[in-house]
Design a protein around this nucleic acid. Structure first.
Lengths: 157, 157
DNA sequence: AGCAACAAGTTACAATTGCAACCATTCGGC
DNA sequence: GCCGAATGGTTGCAATTGTAACTTGTTGCT
């Protein structure tokens, strides 16, 4: 039995960009984001940060801005700006917590609800189509891999 | 035998952001990019676009700017800017094709080579660590899934 | 040869993002 | 109760990025 040679995929430290996972993840994620942005941003005048805020408030009403930030993986500045423009467009209503007057309490307005109920199916349809060629096992694997990698990347930060 | 109920994962068109693949991909990709940028951008004063250009020219010398753009999935403006700053830092050498004087011919300078040979191992080490907890089968699956999804997303663009 | 269409690359400008400093309010110790 | 630290949120500024228009050079057609 001989010593194993270096694994076939690539040589010692020559890096092939087109095989480099961080690069490929970034390209994929960009492509998907751009597709999605085209789908709803253009039709509903919604940016991706705005869409995230909308989506999270549709599901969990009455969140404060930092809570929205936690659930959308955005920083508080990004949330503040998205909230601002959603308020301008009358898609959100903001009140303040009487116990703690720093905290905002955010809810969708009727119009915000309506936008959400029209956009969410588009988003889900896009996702469905994106995943359409994957077997159920592949979908499960994808799900798990993303979770695992995110955890791992989070630890390495 | 009864009619199958809606599949367990989520209800009709209520969208859970935290389960939405495009969202999760974006969060993951961002996290990874930020980690990597910290690792080499800070130490070598390299932005991610610059790094991509460097990496692709290390492997395929003598490319023109548009060829670099194709291989890095960047647009030609981004390449132009990255090339400009790499030229300023004396990490690239640019000549022009004598057959077609519009086309640039880009190569790493000695200093560019040296940066590359120091950065590439860091990048590979990061990737290795990121994937360290995945089984070989998982790694293969990840590889395949990214490719499949990118193709798919490309078609939908 | 002359000119329209096209390709390579750059530049200018607008929109987006990221970061740091900043108010206002609340909390924790004393 | 008071003061320093911490928290929620906003604002301003610089850096990054995207888009369109432009310049220079080439090609193909006549």
């Amino acid at each position: 039995m001989t010593i194993k040679k270096t694994s076939g995929r690539r040589t010692a430290d020559k890096l092939h960009l087109e095989q480099f996972i961080p690069f490929r993840l970034s390209v994929l994620s960009n492509l998907v984001s751009i597709n999605i942005a085209r789908a709803y941003a253009r039709e509903f005048d919604l940016s991706i940060p705005e869409w995230r805020v909308l989506a999270v408030l549709a599901r969990y009403p009455q969140l404060s801005a930092v809570e929205v930030a936690e659930r959308t993986a955005m920083d508080k500045v990004a949330v503040s700006r998205a909230v601002q423009s959603l308020l301008n467009a009358r898609r959100l209503v903001r009140t303040y917590d009487s116990e703690d007057r720093r905290r905002s309490v955010l809810r969708l307005s009727t119009s915000g609800q309506s936008v959400y109920t029209r956009v969410a199916p588009l988003a889900l349809a896009y996702e469905k189509k994106l995943l359409a060629t994957l077997s159920p096992a592949d979908r499960q694997a994808l799900d798990r891999l993303i979770t695992q990698l995110s955890t791992r990347a989070g630890l390495m930060a």
